[in-house]
Design a protein around this nucleic acid. Sequence first.
RNA 1: UGGAUCGUAGCUCAACUUGGCAGAGCACCUCACUGUGAAUGAGGCCGUUGUCGGUUCAAAUCCGAUCGAUCCAC
Length: 403
Amino acid sequence: MTKPIDWEVTAQDGRARTGTLRTRRSIIETPVFMPVGTQGTVKGVRFEWLEDELDARIILGNTYHLFLRPGPDVIREMGGLHKFSTWNRALLTDSGGFQVFSLTDLRKLTEEGVEFRSHIDGSKKFLSPEVSMEVQAALGSEIVMVFDECPPGDAGHERTKLSLELTLRWAQRSKDRFNELQNVQSAGFSPYVGDDSRYQNLRDESSTLNGKQALFGIIQGAGHLDLRDESLERTAEIGFDGYAIGGLSVGEEKPVMYGVLDHIAHKMPADAPRYLMGVGTPEDLVEAVYRGVDMFDCVMPTRNGRTGGVFTWQGKLNIRNAQYATDDQPLDADCPCSVCQRYSRAYLRHLYQAGEMLAATLISHHNLAFYLDLMRRVRIEIKAGTFENFRRGFLERVKNSEK
RNA sequence: UGGAUCGUAGCUCAACUUGGCAGAGCACCUCACUGUGAAUGAGGCCGUUGUCGGUUCAAAUCCGAUCGAUCCAC
């Protein structure tokens, strides 16, 4: 059995580092930003663009959403998420833990897992570490995330501690089930047999994984540094191919996030990729890289793009603003992307105001181009040993643009 | 030419009967958004109530005239 992923550090500058992550489907230079493709699509952006112009090497998929629709049966029958969607580069799938807690009101948390109501039709559903691993096996992603609980950012010490213990038990269960699934041959697989019909839609496993997936653990602990330490230590004891920091940018104050990163990122295993889940703004990315983080994902470039929010080297702008009605400039004069080479702010504003879907598509495209360019630039600066200087300049420029 | 109905925010309308701070939706203008519900939330701007006059402590509201629109009749 070959290693599912291979990871090596290629340069270091302070705590910031570059690396190369090899998966069976693509080679990924880090620090990397991974566009979010919740439902098997990066909203508004064709795979052709992601591959050719933007050169994204890895995108996200989401267990929660794909579990509810179209469901693992359909995806398995279509040959896994890569074949189904035609995205042939790497995929990282989130476990669904976060969505269950952020999207669903009616949910019942037990030791076993989470019972919740589908946001689509209100029907009762169940997710657990085992179910999540099985769904992610059906999806066939290169990187699988453990099923965790994500407490609010301002959760108290006691509540966070309890949540942490549950997440650790779930991490072990995730790993156990994951290992079983990785060792399965297509002919010899026995479905998980529970005492409940909740597993009925996972009765078959036709893909041959043979250890092709990697599994990442998730460190929780909210803003409590002692709990972050404990979470890291005990998660690392279980042992994973990579480690994520979860539970940040979930309502806590910004200094709390940076404080946690200051405290924990550099302590995470140096020979494995460090992934900061769900973060963030361009400034957040630069600040997290500075503290030793290698991987990011965030909905901001595409979600804000859909509502007119534009990220540029000069800071943010909102294409809805009346001041752009007759502005002949591109979104970002320093951006080489195809949107900036062709379209004016005035035209894009018009498209937005007219409710044309192309506005969302073009701005999302630019925003992703900017995020990926930013990471490209960050890698260059780290390799040149000039990252700290770049960071200062970048943050200064963004700060000035907000005055 | 006569009769009827109607003129209130950029648009569609409410308040008129029974006089008492002129109000919604949309649009527009801003903001928020961090492991995505193409989601959602928040805030803001907007009026000589067609015009002129009368009654009244008080008029979008009642009365008269006038201008305009629509419909009907001829």
